[in-house]
Amino acid sequence: MNSEKIVENARLLAGEDVNVSTNRIPPPEASFMKHPSKLKALQAVAHLTAAERDQNIKTPKNNAFWNQEMGKIQYFICKTLLVGMYLVFGLFRYLQYEYNRMKLRIWNVIYNPSNTPQLIRQDVTKLNKIPRRLAAILEMKSVGSVGGGVKGLMNDGSEVACWTVSAGIKHLILYDFDGILKKNVLEFKQEIKTKLSRYFGPSNVPKFALRIPHKNKVYFSNDDTHKISLEISLLSNRDGRQTIVDLTKTMAELTKSEELQLQDITMKLMDKELTQLVGPEPDLLLYFGPSLDLQGFPPWHLRLTEFHWEQDNDQVTYSIFIRGLHKYSSCKINVGK
């Protein structure tokens, strides 16, 4: 079968161009709630009142036959009312934000594993099912803030890895948009080792493997590659749309040189190739940001994945992790039914 060959060629293509599209516009709520600021919000609303009517935006036509656009006076009244509504909504959202933050603080007190795998395992054994594969989207905070920069990101990643080992999940996928973890894989490995020794004691650190599917490289924690208790895949934006397009290019080339028939390109083949290029699809996706933002996580692999995030949270904490597992254990899985 030439599926191996397709993967090989797609990887070759992937090595060629590594420039990642940087002009990402995140969904509005997520982008603002990462750095919420009352002043900015008020300024924006005030700016709206002063702004001229945008000619490009078409106001609705109440009845298409009469081609009615909003008149000037009507538009002015509507805009004033809209500003009023924004203010009310903003106030409501602010109260909700404070309430959510309070709730999260209480949870953080309740769920506190304090580096003890036994406590985590105890929490997990109560559940009737856990995901086989877990994914987490991590973000690098700005260097100036607490837990920011590359160091902070690696700290978050290794923390999640420790919980995953303690919970007994065998496969973890860590996604960060810019691929910073991938670039610093050796430091990251060291960081995980240090963290794990804090959890399990320095004499018996669990073995793990770091995999970068995009480059087809595996880094083992020890020289001994048997009995690995955790496999971590590092993904980035590069594994998303671009990989699918690369695969298409490869298939097109092979079809041109008549090594591949058009009818051989089936969904099964694509699934197989993408599993080799990116990895298997996760069961549960954790996001540690304030509002769900998938940040270009590989689309093919999101098919039936359950999402978990907490509104207005901005820290990588254990409470989110365990609540995600709780939610997963109670969800019903029904494909097509």
Binding site: R24, P28, E29, R241, Q295, P299, R303, F307
Partner: peptide, 10 residues
């Protein structure tokens, strides 16, 4: 999946 996974709000 393709349409929402980058910049879409859910």
């Amino acid at each position: 999946l393709w349409q929402i996974h980058e910049n879409g709000g859910i």
